[in-house]
Amino acid sequence: MKSLGSIRRSFAPWTDPDAKPYISFRNVTKRFGDFTAVDNLNLDIYHREFFALLGASGCGKSTLLRMLAGFEQPTEGEIILDGQNMAGTPPYRRPVNMMFQSYALFPHMSVEKNIAFGLRQDGMPKPEIEERVKQMLKLVKLEQFAGRKPSQLSGGQRQRVALARSLAKRPKVLLLDEPLGALDKKLREETQFELMDLQQELGLTFVVVTHDQEEAMTMADRIAVMSAGHVIQVATPAEIYEEPKSRFVAEFIGDVNVFNGTCKGVVDGKCEIAGDDGLTIRIQSADVPPTGTKAGFAIRPEKMRISAGPPADSTVNAISGEIWDIGYLGDMTVFYVKLESGKVVKTSQLNAARTVDDPFGYEQQVWVSFAEDAGVILKD
């Protein structure tokens, strides 16, 4: 059985035509004066899904989250949550809670009082508050820090306090706006997996806004890639990475090399693209552009091979060039190869061994090659 990437969990209600979305944005538009932040957007999110809204600053992802939370109202369209139209429902009456990037903890309150604050506001009896706070502290592994103030905690600990406070009211949906942006790289990576485990343990729906591709790829069941108020593609992380449906998604997610050219048609069962860089690319693809039309070809650096001579396998695509730059990253080495046309392509090679026989050097003539099924055709 072949799959695009490893499968984190057997959870895919979006593939079931009978599954009912838990959250639906229906023809939602949001304008701020003359500026359109979200433009006639349609999107479905399912119960217990970890869903990521991914895009550059100003693409509309935070506006979408704020409309779901009730802090903004759509100019047009509907937002449906668990079968109920959210129009006119104030934030405090929605079954959602939002965790902000700044965490917004009360500096004069202890950890346990920060967590209990919303419960006290709702008038929950004191014994129940104490029990709920105890549960939340255990959940985020902060029992021994209950009496400390936020200033006495690390960034990761403050993040977990904010998370516990958001979960204390047991919302149906937890909204996270750039939740890990203030953490250092190592702690951010650890916290990503903690959030994933916590979400599955609680069985809640998480919707996270982020501009960090790696964060979205690690945590989310599905990702919506956004640009200029539109959703460009919604798919699993593996599908987004391996089968981008547009040039924008291919170039936005990860590193990619794009060859532009003209489709020559199907030759010996393979689609051929005459590249503008002098390379005729043979591709295994069921989705072939019309002959004579412009087309692009996208391939990830790790799917390209670099060698001192032409590859022995005649079925692979290959082109010669000169090593322009080298980057040693520890786990892998990145090579920038300048082709005869002047185009520079990026390849990466896993450093599986500690030493390398005859390593490549600057200005060395090499061959770059890739298999016929290593990349995808781009039509726009």
Results as ranks from 00 to 15, higher is better:
residue 357 D to C: 07
residue 212 D to K: 08
residue 268 D to C: 01
residue 177 D to E: 10
residue 146 A to I: 04
residue 153 L to N: 05
residue 279 L to F: 02
residue 309 G to R: 07
residue 62 S to E: 02
residue 15 T to H: 11
residue 155 G to P: 06
residue 289 P to C: 09
residue 31 R to W: 06
residue 32 F to D: 10
residue 89 T to R: 01
residue 10 S to N: 14
residue 175 L to V: 04
residue 80 I to K: 04
residue 282 R to W: 07
residue 367 W to V: 02
residue 279 L to M: 15
residue 307 S to D: 12
residue 365 Q to N: 13
residue 361 G to P: 01
residue 238 A to Y: 08
residue 313 D to Y: 01
residue 199 Q to H: 14
residue 380 D to C: 02
residue 253 I to W: 10
residue 184 D to Q: 05
residue 342 G to K: 06
residue 279 L to W: 00
residue 340 E to R: 09
residue 50 F to H: 02
residue 90 P to S: 06
residue 305 R to A: 14
residue 294 K to G: 09
residue 70 G to A: 01
residue 247 R to F: 04
residue 83 G to E: 01
residue 233 Q to E: 03
residue 205 T to C: 08
residue 357 D to V: 14
residue 141 K to P: 04
residue 324 W to G: 00
residue 189 E to H: 05
residue 10 S to V: 10
residue 277 D to F: 02
residue 299 I to N: 06
residue 98 M to A: 05
residue 55 G to V: 09
residue 186 K to T: 07
residue 25 F to R: 06
residue 204 L to V: 15
residue 125 P to F: 07
residue 70 G to H: 03
residue 111 V to D: 00
residue 88 G to T: 11
residue 153 L to M: 09
residue 163 L to H: 15
residue 133 V to W: 06
residue 275 G to A: 12
residue 196 M to H: 04
residue 298 A to H: 09
residue 137 L to M: 09
residue 28 V to M: 04
residue 363 E to P: 02
residue 31 R to C: 15
residue 42 N to R: 13
residue 71 F to K: 08
residue 13 P to T: 09
residue 340 E to N: 13
residue 317 N to C: 08
residue 5 G to P: 00
residue 257 N to M: 09
residue 109 M to H: 00
residue 227 S to F: 00
residue 229 G to N: 12
residue 303 K to W: 09
residue 121 Q to E: 11
residue 11 F to E: 03
residue 263 C to R: 02
residue 166 S to Q: 13
residue 311 P to W: 09
residue 216 A to W: 02
residue 58 G to R: 05
residue 3 S to K: 11
residue 332 M to T: 14
residue 266 V to G: 09
residue 278 G to M: 11
residue 190 E to N: 03
residue 207 V to Y: 02
residue 187 L to I: 15
residue 76 E to P: 02
residue 162 A to H: 12
residue 288 V to L: 11
residue 276 D to H: 04
residue 89 T to F: 02
residue 100 F to D: 05
residue 103 Y to K: 01
residue 144 Q to Y: 08
residue 37 A to P: 07
residue 90 P to I: 06
residue 326 I to D: 01
residue 258 V to R: 12
residue 317 N to R: 12
residue 165 R to I: 05
residue 371 A to G: 12
residue 257 N to E: 10
residue 83 G to T: 03
residue 337 V to T: 11
residue 122 D to S: 11
residue 205 T to S: 08
residue 179 P to G: 10
residue 14 W to Y: 03
residue 156 G to Q: 03
residue 298 A to K: 12
residue 20 K to A: 02
residue 271 C to H: 04
residue 22 Y to R: 03
residue 29 T to Q: 07
residue 292 G to Y: 14
residue 365 Q to T: 12
residue 47 H to C: 04
residue 274 A to C: 08
residue 131 E to P: 02
residue 185 K to M: 11
residue 211 H to M: 08
residue 284 Q to Y: 08
residue 243 E to Q: 15
